[in-house]
């Protein structure tokens, strides 16, 4: 292709549209994973991004009469013009093959587990039974934080609890990369990630530690986590101290409870 022809193509809406789609695909599939600390983008998200870009491209080529007419030119030409018979035939074969391929991909059996959605942060119950005692989770703070003077002691205790119990799965760096981690689905939580404990109240973490995988509501399935029910092995204080340790070590601050306003007309929020 000569330089002027290339330039003409670059200003033609049809080839612009194709170009934008190709570039977007390259960016999402190959460039994003190259960024520091990044990883491959799941297929579902690639599809979602590409559909959004496609809609944008279609809007671009059709929001102006002249551009829309030019955009349609090559398509109409391929469909109708006699001199493009070969292109038409090739296109027909390629499109048919593509549809077949997609259909095959949908029905072919694979050994991989199907994609699944677990709700990482299922809604916690308002109260739980911890070793036969009721604990109200709503509005609950870490009781150990009420004694700032002995915080260092609690942290040391929490550290011990962590290294005795949590290390094999959650790892030395608290990043969910323990020795056994690769054997689990779902993977152990990565506390360093900004999407786990950084988003949660300490009472939520307490609930998850105390009740473990068996205590997950159904929205946390299909595959229940292998996290044990730690209330059978740890005391309440040990759990609170290990939570203290998690936040201290990762540098996250726990989510705090919203200040409940004093409402009128029985909009009671604080009392219950």
């Amino acid at each position: 292709m000569t330089a002027p022809a290339l330039r003409r193509s670059a200003t033609h809406p049809f080839w612009q549209a194709v170009g934008i789609l190709v570039i977007a695909y390259i960016v999402v599939v190959w460039v994003v994973p190259l960024l520091p600390g990044s990883a491959i983008v799941p297929k579902s998200v690639v599809l979602q991004y590409m559909v959004t870009v496609l809609v944008g491209v279609l809007i671009y080529v059709s929001d102006n009469e002249e551009r829309w007419a030019r955009f349609k030119e090559p398509i109409e030409a391929v469909l109708a013009e006699p001199r493009l018979r070969v292109v038409r035939a090739v296109l027909l074969v390629v499109v048919t093959a593509l549809v077949g391929l997609v259909a095959y991909g949908q029905v072919a059996t694979t050994v991989a587990a199907p994609p699944n959605l677990r709700s990482i942060h299922p809604a916690p119950p308002a109260e739980i039974t911890f070793r036969g005692r009721s604990i109200t989770l709503t509005g609950l703070e870490n009781p150990l934080r009420a004694h700032p003077e002995s915080l260092a002691l609690y942290l040391a205790e929490g550290k011990g609890v962590y290294y005795r119990n949590c290390l094999p799965c959650h790892g030395d760096h608290l990043d969910g990369q323990g020795h056994f981690a690769s054997g689990f689905n779902p993977l152990p939580a990565n506390f360093q990630d900004n999407g786990t404990i950084a988003q949660l109240t300490e009472s939520f973490v307490f609930w998850r530690v105390a009740k473990g995988g068996p205590g997950l509501p159904r929205e946390g399935t299909p595959w229940n986590s292998a996290m044990p029910k730690w209330e059978d092995f740890l005391t309440e204080r040990e759990i609170w101290s290990v939570i203290l340790f998690l936040y201290d070590q990762t540098g996250w601050t726990p989510r705090t409870w919203e200040k409940t306003g004093t409402g009128d007309g029985g909009r009671g929020t604080g009392h219950d």
Partner: peptide, 15 residues
């Protein structure tokens, strides 16, 4: 009915 927690059967002697 308390939502969540372990349903049914109380622990001995109310815990």
């Amino acid at each position: 009915a308390n939502s969540g927690g372990s349903p049914g059967g109380g622990a001995f002697a109310a815990g």
